[in-house]
Design a protein around this nucleic acid. Structure first.
Lengths: 338, 338
DNA sequence: ATGAAAGCGCTAACAT
DNA sequence: ATGTTAGCGCTTTCAT
């Protein structure tokens, strides 16, 4: 069965293409009778409009392009769900691409997405290579950079400072009496935001005459299993640690599981600290420290920005939307160790 | 800065639109000199082709529409990543939509996606309402229904039988000596596949003269926190159970955490059984039973099917791709209770 | 190897 | 309230 066109619907309804178009779109100045005739014809032919033609003709799309680095932990899916929610009711459609934390791939994906003439584009982070930035600037649409705040935005910026998140966590842990820190991370060469958190954390340690006593860093992407494995490696020689800072909650959860299996002092004495405030982390049977990243809200804000920037005569005057993650689960050192 | 068009590139290169088009696409019969002139001009104008025009003109898109019910646990993001991977290198682009387990919303989303004239469409499940099925059939493109196998597919079908998954898990648990079962689930009115698993499980229990001793079912969507909460509710009166079957691994993980906090007999004696085989479930500090759904593979298979159905002269002759989830973590009942 | 003409399906702008 | 004309930016087809 061939797809039917507006022309066929119009013919079936005995009106012109234009009248059929207006009736279908619910535009003013179509008599009730005519509208019903057209709607009926469309129904009978199971007509589905062709957005390619619509958008080409009207010079506008309802598309928002979104590029995220990964789908393998729950953080970015939540951002995407937030964007979808922020767009809901606006008639706009998010189109997603996954860069796998690869800047070359990201460039290609952005290029492909731009070729669909989206009305706005959301990209993750502020550290795109120059040629990607140039391409985004040339696109002449609102560019919304999300998650990170540490850098120079092209246009709109919604996120948090990961450097500061690391600093804040370090300060909170120091205030709780922690002094002997380990660090466990992964894929730091690709996950720049995890890097910035680590750098911020280390900055504060250094200011206090401290540093990481132990480090375990792996090239693979973060996962619970990897966090568990690296923690086992770190704790095997029974180092004198009272806290381990992880690159994120997945890794930290693995760390907690490792401690639970080791039992004894590992569990009680070493505070596990992560980042994200995943639902998982909050439901864990033992407390871990974490900073809650407002990823859903970041998505929603980006979605709303996109619709405003497109719909209204004038886009939002506010360019930067800054969030500060809330720190939870920081417990004081066990009295016996003070 | 206005977006430049092919015409402008052609003018800048001193050739016709057609030649520029051929040069840009790398089509045969363009002299090397000319090609380079065009490429240079395109580069200078930072030309990005307009896919709307391309697709309208050529009557084909590189789009694969994908509709999933949710992004709030890791299962569907993994399916999406699989689809992206299965499409990689084909030049095709996946476009995602989220239905929130709402069939009306699903209908609208599918309609919207079809208006972009995708080359294939991937939808979750086999239980779309009739009018949605009709719309899909009228679209005259390959329809790939994923995840579920229990029902009548429109065209291609990639997934597993959830009824059978429930049956198999029940048999495995019975074989391990379990007899007193509880059930904990959520959103069963919307998550039809969880329903089918429960029904299959119950079927086998009934065949063996058994049934669920206790049930806790909530309307909210599944989450670790909800699984934990419902488990606490179920275990508060200390019922005599040796196994709890959960609607999925998120719920089951919450159940395990509840047991860990309760400690004592709850932890050792009650086997927690879920569904999906999440990485999380496999790294947990105590074993839970689960069936590993091959969600990534399902996604990849769907992606490959889409590209084959579109690219090749003839699409895959195989219409149904059936997977059987592997069951792990079923432990025998503690000897003292036999 | 290159170009000109026609048209994809729709809407904007301008009649009537 | 309805219709007509032109054109969105590209590719297809047919010339040359």
């Amino acid at each position: 069965m061939r797809k039917s066109t507006l022309e066929e619907v119009a013919a079936a309804a005995g009106v012109s293409k234009m009248t059929a178009s207006r009736a279908l779109r619910g535009v003013a100045d179509v008599s009730k009778e005519t509208r019903e005739k057209v709607l009926l014809a469309a129904e009978r032919l199971s007509y589905v409009g062709n957005r390619l033609a619509l958008s080409l003709s009207s010079q506008r799309t309802n598309l928002v392009a979104v590029v995220v680095p990964s789908m393998s932990n729950i953080v970015f899916p939540e951002v995407l769900a937030g964007i979808s929610a922020g767009l809901e009711g606006s008639g706009m459609q998010a189109v997603f691409g996954i860069s796998d934390y690869d800047t070359a791939k990201e460039h290609t994906i952005i290029r492909d997405m731009l070729s669909w003439q989206p009305s706005a584009i959301v990209v993750t982070g502020l550290d795109q290579p120059q040629e990607t930035v140039r391409m985004l600037q040339n696109a002449a649409i609102p560019v919304i950079q999300i998650m990170d705040l540490d850098g120079t935005p092209i246009d709109f910026n919604v996120g948090l400072s990961h450097g500061k998140a690391g600093e804040d966590m370090a300060r909170a842990l120091l205030a709780a009496g922690r002094r002997r820190f380990g660090y466990i991370g992964s894929a730091l060469n690709r996950d720049l935001r995890a890097c910035k958190r680590k750098a911020g954390f280390e900055r504060v340690l250094n200011e206090n005459g401290l540093g990481f006593v132990e480090q375990q860093i792996d090239d693979a992407f973060s996962s619970i299993a990897l966090g568990k494995h690296l923690t086992q490696q770190m704790l095997a020689p029974a180092p004198n640690l009272d806290c381990i800072y992880y690159s994120n909650d997945d890794m930290a959860t693995g760390g907690l599981f490792a401690c639970m299996e080791l039992g004894g002092s590992a569990l009680g004495d070493i505070l596990i600290a992560g980042f994200n405030g995943l639902d998982l982390a909050l439901a864990l049977p033992a407390r871990i420290a974490t900073s809650r990243s407002p990823r859903r809200t970041i998505g929603e804000t980006a979605g709303k920005l996109a619709r405003e920037a497109v719909a209204a005569g004038q886009p939002s005057p506010q360019k930067v939307f800054s969030f500060v993650p809330e720190i939870t689960g920081v417990s004081a050192l066990h009295p016996s160790r003070l």
